[in-house]
Each structure stands twice: as C-alpha cells, then as structure tokens.
Design a protein around this nucleic acid. Structure first.
Lengths: 245, 245
DNA sequence: AAAGAGCACATTGCATGCATTTTGCGCGAT
DNA sequence: ATCGCGCAAAATGCATGCAATGTGCTCTTT
C-alpha cells in the first residue's frame, strides 16, 4: 500500500541477498560493535564483488545499523540501552498516531474485520510450545501492521517502517524467547489490542492514541527485564551484541 | 550530536555533489513527477559516471524523493497534498515528542539559554524585507533544531531528520514567500515558541508536547492557503512541482 | 621512553566494460 | 481494431582496474 521502502525492493539480485545476509550477520553479532566493515574484507566473506557490497552497506547505513565514517566507509553501530528505549518510545508515539488516524479515518466498521479476526488469536497458552510462540509473534506482527494500514497514510507507514529498523524497536521484538516470557504479559497485551480496536471502532482517536502508545511500554519492560536478569540467554538474541550499556 | 544521517557524510566527493545537485533539480521541478531517471541519461546531464550517480539515486530514494521501480531503477516520486499534510502532522507529532523529552530531561534551566536568546528575535516587522524574511526563516529553523537537541535523544533526532526530508514537511518550510506571508502569523508562531519554552522550563512535558504539535499546524494552514490561492507563485517553490492534488 | 615524521599498505572513490534483464515498438494473427 | 508475440534497443546489475586518499606502523630523534 505505501511507497515501498527501499529494503523490500527487488529479489534475486546480489545486492538484495547481501543486504539480508549482512543484516543477519551483524545482528547475530558476528562483528563487534564499532568494527569497521571494509569492502574488500566482505568480498571474500560474502563471495560477491565490491559494487553490490557497497550498495548493501549504504542501505544498512540508512537503516541505522551502520554508521558512516566521515572519511569513507562504515562501521558497525552500537546502541545504548537508552537509544533502544527511545527507539521503542518513538515507535510507540508513531503507532499511537497510526491508531488515532485509524480512528479518525475509519469509514465503515467493516474495515475492522481483519483486525478483529486477529484479536482472539493473540493469546498464549501455558505451557508455551515453540510453534505456538512463533505463531504468537507472527500474529502480533500482523496485528500491528494491520493498524498501520488502517491509518491510511503512506507517509506514516513509511516512518513506521523506518523507525522499526532499529534493533528491538519493532513491535514483534517485544518478546524474546518462550523461556523469558511471562504468559500473563500476553494477556495484558491482548487486552490492550482489544481496547485499541474498540477505540478505533468508536472513533475515539485520542483514546486509541494513548492506548497504542502505552502498549509499546510492554516492549520496554520486557527489554529491561531481559537485560537485567537473563544476560546469557539474551545475548543470543539478534541485535543483542550491538547493545552497549 | 546524533548519529549523523547519511546525507551530510562526506564532502568534495562526486557522490555528495550529485546528491545536492540532483535533489535541487528534482525539487525545482526539472523532472516531471513519475518520470524515470535513468543512470545513462544523468551521465550526460550531470557530467559524472554511473557509479556515483547510482549511489546518489539510492540516497535520494531513501530520503523519499525517488521511488524504486521493482524491476530496477528509480522514478521521481509525486506527493499528494494529503501525503504532505500527513508528513507535516508526523513532524508535529515527533516535535511534540521532542518537546516532551526536553521537558522531562531538563536538568538545569541554563540549558535553555540558547533557545531563550532566540525567542525575542523570531518576529517579523511590517513591511517584510527580503533580508529580514530570510533571517526569519533561519532563526525559525535554528529554534526548532535547538528543541530537537534539548530532547537529548539521538534516536529521535534521527527520525526527525528523516521525516523532514519530505517536501514542505520541514519546519522552515512553513512559510513560502514574504508576499504570501501574513505578519500576524509570525506573531502567533512566536507566542507558540515562547509557550513551548516555558512549558519545557516548567517541566510540563504534556503541555510542551501538545503545544509543539499544535504549532506544526501553522505549516499546514500555510500550505493549504498557498495551494488554494496563489497557484502561480506557489509553483515556483522548491518541491511544488512534485505535488499532485 | 615518548613523540613526531615518513613511508608502505590498505581502503575507498570513480570509471568503464560486459552480461542479463527489461521495455517498448512493430508486426502479424485473430 | 485488438491482442499477442517477438525482436531490438536500452537500462540496470555486476565485476574489476586505476588513482587518490587515508591509516597505521616503524624508525628516528629528543
């Protein structure tokens, strides 16, 4: 629906493969934070020539995963926990705006059919099986993007996608592993989802905004909890290697 | 202060020159909205080889001025007035967040020295001379960026810069030409600036947010006014050629 | 031992050739 | 007249060579 962001452009091209591979490897922690990524070094590592590598580096820098070096080249960016908390809060602010837009721009309640159908499914049973957990994450992601679409604003969609590129900022990153996750939190989240949809349906824009914004706090709480307690487990999460406290 | 965005990276490099030139020419309307920009076509036009041109196109696409074509290449993006209104509103939401952060994170009132010194100068005398108008725009821009900095959030700064890349979305684009501009609006804006700083100083985060958000509405009103009335004059503004109603 | 200069190497910026894919046009068939 | 096919031209994707600049190390000097 929106002007598609540059990350999902083509397919089957070297550049695209490199962006995916590099992003995954960076988030996995294969490069230490602050490390310079040289084009030639990546040539041998990624089996590609310098040109597509250069483009991939450009794109990842635009995503915010790399920092351009003033004299040329890029280094792996590091994120403080404050950076990440801010990124989550910004995402919350933007999702709040999306929810408000959705409420303000709703024409027919039938437009809510798809989100509503998602609602009863976004709950988690105890004990958590890996499959149900994966499905939970996926449903969560689907729900949030559905709200993005209900906002009917390509501009906002675009900014949301940009803001979610930061590690841990995306809504589906709000939970980490079944082991760390409190099932009760899932119920709180589900209730918030329900309330958001209700507010949209009632055209209560301000309420929808406040709810969506508060909803993003779950991600922040989870983040803090994980980084406080379960350090070893958390360090295996994608992106965790880039976090410097 | 923040992780510098990719647009201000280097200097004296072909790529950098091309980004500036191309952006200016696109905003000036030298290419029609929707037109495909081919690398070879630009080679002769910009006197550069394909490699830096390709990079420049990538960057402009990330800014949102170009749309990637799924099968490769880029075309000049067009903006509906709704797109632009949304972009302004998003900027308002983000600046509201910046003002709130500034209020919440203020440590010593002395930090406000610089914005306060800006305040009494952001007024416009009648009649408007071109110089005083240019100075007015510059001061306005400085004020807004100072608030961005007071938010003490690199993540937010980054998103603000990104959001302001859209034509007419930036705060300094809120006014167009001395002829169109109502001097009274400048006084309203100045009062809003004053109130925002006051709210920050009093640590009234919510008020600061609401004020900054509302403040962005001036840009929107101006936009609507200009596009309704003074079509010919408006069409000479940078970016106006990309607006399709 | 510390600091500075100089040099060799590493790295990026740019240019350009080749191969593949896309695109647009013209022609023919229905 | 319209639709579809096929071909030619054009455009991008990729690879690689060259030049200029930056980087880091060593060696010298104080």
């Amino acid at each position: 629906m929106p002007a598609s962001p540059i990350t999902t452009v083509n397919s089957n091209t070297q550049t695209e493969r490199l962006v995916l591979t590099l992003r995954a490897r960076i988030l996995k922690g294969e490069f230490s934070a602050g490390e310079r990524l040289t084009e030639l070094g990546l040539v041998s590592l990624l089996r590609a020539s310098r040109t597509p590598i250069r483009i991939a580096l450009e794109r990842l820098a635009n995503e915010g995963l790399l920092d351009p070096i003033p004299t040329g080249g890029f280094r792996v960016r590091s994120f403080s926990t404050i950076d990440i908390c801010d990124a989550i809060e910004i995402r919350g602010v933007l999702e709040g705006t999306a929810a408000r837009f959705a409420a303000e721009r709703l024409e027919r309640v039938e437009e809510l059919g798809r989100v509503k159908r998602l609602l009863p499914r976004v709950i988690l049973e105890n004990p958590i099986s890996p499959e149900s957990f994966a499905q939970f994450l996926d449903l969560n992601r689907t729900f949030h993007r559905e709200v993005w679409c209900l906002a009917k604003s390509p501009s906002l969609f675009r900014e949301l996608e940009h803001a979610c590129k930061i590690p841990f900022a995306a809504p589906e990153a709000l939970v980490f592993s079944p082991a760390d996750y409190e099932v009760s939190t899932a119920h709180v989240a589900a209730e918030q989802h329900r309330a958001i949809v209700e507010a949209i349906e009632n055209r209560e824009g301000s309420r929808a905004e406040a709810l969506a914004r508060e909803h993003s706090r779950i991600a922040r709480r989870n983040l803090e909890a994980v980084f406080r307690s379960n350090k070893e487990g958390a360090s295996r999460l994608p992106g965790a290697a880039l976090v410097t406290h």
